[in-house]
Amino acid sequence: MKAASFLYELPEDLNTALQLLNSSDIDVLPLAGGQSLMPMMNFRVSQPDLLVDLNKIDSLKKIDSDSNSIKIGSMVKYSDMEKSDLIKEKIPLINNVIPFVAHSAIRNRGTIGGSIALADPAAEFPSLLVSLDATIELMNIKGTREVKSEDFFTGIFETDRKTNELVTSINIPINKSPKKFGFYEITRRHGDYAMAGAFVTTDGDKKEFSNSRVVLFAVSTKPLRIIDIEVFLNGNLLNDVSVQENAIDIINGYEFEGDLHNDTEAKKTYAKVSLKRALGELNG
């Protein structure tokens, strides 16, 4: 199980990387943390002609903030986020979720940009970012554009990113008091990709649901934001059990994707349970 041959470049600045990515005659892939790409290359499922390693581009490794948002560079590793006081203080949800992402040796290499560019529907971060209404910044040699995280993920391992573009940063809005959140995922083994999971976020300074977001993962082809539930929740008290029950019932109207170990019906059950428990976490 050895990767097929490829060419390799290690640019030290973003422009060079974007130039390399712009080659139209060969199959070029950016290499971020490699924690998903490398296995696919070892299995020869992925056989790029050229690998552009982003690990030397320091401008992509920063975590910045202003009064409105936190900007996380795409090459920031899970372990860097885990250690960031800024993230801990402003968006504690991220800090809470990271221990559930694989295992520490993976988090020491895996990057936020790599994770969302891969867009594994069972991964936590794509849905986490949708639940925080994050914006994805993309660049190619011509310029920069921003895409709402919700629009960025388009299918199983599919995103709005064009092959000549790089995810350069993730911008997450911050509020005066951090968003309240609930997170629950169902796995059979610690660190596995989830069988289902749910994020619920709501304004941090209110007793009622307000500007809430409900996003499920690992049950559909992409992060599944359920606006019906958000609309239903907004204005209701956070701790109203009957409201929660009715919100969960809304899931019955949705279709879910099965996987190797779980059929669609089981996935629906897991979706409901994870939402129920995420709502429970919100109050816990």
Binding site: G34, M38, N42, H103, A105
Partner: peptide
């Protein structure tokens, strides 16, 4: 396993653990 799951190749680089099957030697 050569796909980053079993952990047998885990070692220390600059004070951090990594899966050495998921890292190119050039890196």
């Amino acid at each position: 396993c050569e796909h980053g799951v079993c952990g047998a190749c885990t070692l220390d680089i600059n004070g951090e653990t990594v899966r050495s099957c998921l890292m190119l030697a050039v890196q």
